[in-house]
Design a protein around this nucleic acid. Structure first.
Lengths: 342, 342
DNA sequence: CTGAAAGCGCTTACAG
DNA sequence: CTGAAAGCGCTTACAG
């Protein structure tokens, strides 16, 4: 691999001149410039960015650490972040902590020692104590999906999503609205539960604890929860599932019980527009604006890099409800006119 | 951010000694070692890996460039690659070219100038001319899913997958097996088409060009293709769809036509176990061993790094058929006993 | 405009 | 075992 020194020698100039030609920051006579460029081409010279970064104390690289590479919002999150990064010539790289706190910690350290200019982090778990060092070192970082004290962050308001779901179901005439919870250590869970309760209150429905069932996160869990809910004496006429997998299992349970969705029972879910679109019937869902979350987070990070002492910001974005067939939609509801026979 | 120099000063030793303590490569007396470690802790000293890499000419970092962050096989591909990378203490970072050749090129350059030790590339498009420089520079690289001349690669044998699908369908008594193609610039397409023909031949079915229809890659495309196939005078009794989205649309078309899957018509697809599992009926599919592809690719890359002059390797892995409800499965077929009423 | 030189923060022979 | 020094490949004042 050739170096700036070789280029300089072959072009019969100093290494400073080569550097000036390549960076364009200092004018160089056309004669020398061309000699340099010719040699660069001939050698396929690739400047050593490590040396450059070491000198200028900037890598133009952002690391994004995600807890689960399989998350349905990842593609849009990444696209949004990329889009914003590209505008300012940053390279975005993604690392995967696999929901292991130890890996997350290692990756954070790896990124710091490699002197990335900033970090986007979707933290795993609920403990944030391992982020203290990062905060104290004032490493530019933005947390995704979690409101970590003292750090910039971008979160979705999951309570709104759940509330809107419930209100939508109630507006469609549903009286008894159940909720299949997701993984208990999912931070969004508590918020959604709150939104669920708020939605009930605002719609004049009573809160009934027995309508809340645990669910983990597989289709089998959803199926199991569905079977148990449908077997009840006072069967609910609407069910909110914490994710599309639960919803899928639930739909199977409904089908097996010879019930019709949405006629007999409505179903709503969260996130994962792809799966919700694929299911039959298509499933109404409250979705995080994942692409916007990605771009906002990156913008926030770039601001933090440029202005390390700005005051902390936490951007909270609203989720949005996409009405589909599973809540009795048809054309009417997808136009916002929620007229459903319960 | 503190440097090795500050640590040395506070611990009253030379910077060489600090380095020796941290690397462990040269023994240091317990007295000095402890003094150093105490200061390291106190300052939260994070060695500058850029400087280290510059000196030792090694970054311990692998870059993986993927053409589409939304690809269903990505999570497993990444996990497999990570697993293998971790075993040898490499950091794996993912970049996203967004199916743009220009971005791919930029990312390759960015990785080279940052001196990653190796690259894993899932190339976009079908042209490989832009990889010439990489090949000539002998940058350690392994291509995924594409057999690029002169470069190591790991590919799945899509023809086998298609062939097995067809044979499975034929064994179930299906006589007229149609094929909805995916995106025309998908390299796997041609292979699958070949496998489709082979499968027909081996099953004693005649090849009929009119049974092959274009399809792009959305549920709507699948729906459209399905509608047209089902309306035919001589309606096929089995359809192979190039991806799960096409299959989803196709299932809708079947449902709308008041036909039953698998009773009236069988459906099979490729990859995307998640979606195939979610659809109703669950869809039989030929799947790439994506996790294994990831780990094999990484292992190959690490070998190439250690032994730059080894001869080129191209690993071809078999796809595997997962039989589900859509091909008339039931318990029998999922046990491998393909007894289907056609 | 051009070149010589210092310095970014490490590692590693080399003396002692 | 320990320290002084060279050097990895760049950028950037500073003279000329």
């Amino acid at each position: 691999m050739s170096t700036i020194r070789e280029v300089a020698r072959l072009a019969r100039v100093s290494i400073g001149t080569v550097s000036n030609v390549l960076s364009g920051s200092v004018p160089v006579s056309a004669r020398l410039r061309e000699r340099v460029l010719a040699v660069v081409q001939q050698l396929d010279y690739q400047p050593n960015h490590l040396a450059r970064s070491l000198k200028i104390r900037e890598t133009k690289m952002i690391g994004m650490v995600i807890d689960d590479i399989g998350r349905p919002i990842l593609p849009q999150l990444m696209r949004g972040a990329e889009e914003a990064a590209l505008l300012q010539d940053y390279l975005l790289v993604l690392l995967h902590s696999d929901q292991k706190l130890e890996r997350e910690q290692q990756m954070l350290t790896a990124l710091r020692t490699r002197r990335v200019d900033g970090i986007l982090l979707a933290p795993t778990g609920t403990s944030h104590s391992h982020l203290r060092a990062i905060r104290e070192a004032k490493v530019p970082i933005v947390c995704l999906e979690r409101d970590v004290p003292g750090l910039d962050c971008v979160v979705a308001d999951h309570s709104t999503g759940a509330r809107e779901c419930v209100r939508h179901l109630a507006a469609g005439g549903r009286r008894s609205i159940a909720f299949i919870l997701g993984n208990p250590d999912d931070a969004a869970g508590a918020e959604r539960l709150r939104g669920y309760r708020e939605g009930l209150a605002e719609s004049g429905r009573e809160f009934d604890e027995t309508l809340i069932v645990g669910g983990a996160s597989s289709a089998d869990d959803g199926h199991r929860a569905g079977v148990s809910l449908l077997a009840r004496e006072r069967r609910p006429d609407a069910i909110l599932a914490a994710d599309a997998w639960l919803a899928a299992g639930l739909l199977r349970a409904i089908h097996e019980a010879r019930l019709r969705c949405p006629d007999d029972i409505a179903v709503a879910s969260f996130d994962d527009p792809f799966c919700c679109e694929l299911l039959r019937p298509r499933v109404t869902a409250a979705t995080q604006p994942s692409r916007e979350m990605g771009s906002k987070a990156m913008e926030l990070l770039l601001k933090r890099i440029q202005e390390p002492d700005r005051r902390r910001a936490c951007i909270r974005l609203d989720t949005f409800l996409t009405v589909r067939e599973s809540t009795g939609a048809g054309v009417a509801a997808s136009l916002g006119v929620t007229s459903v026979t319960g």
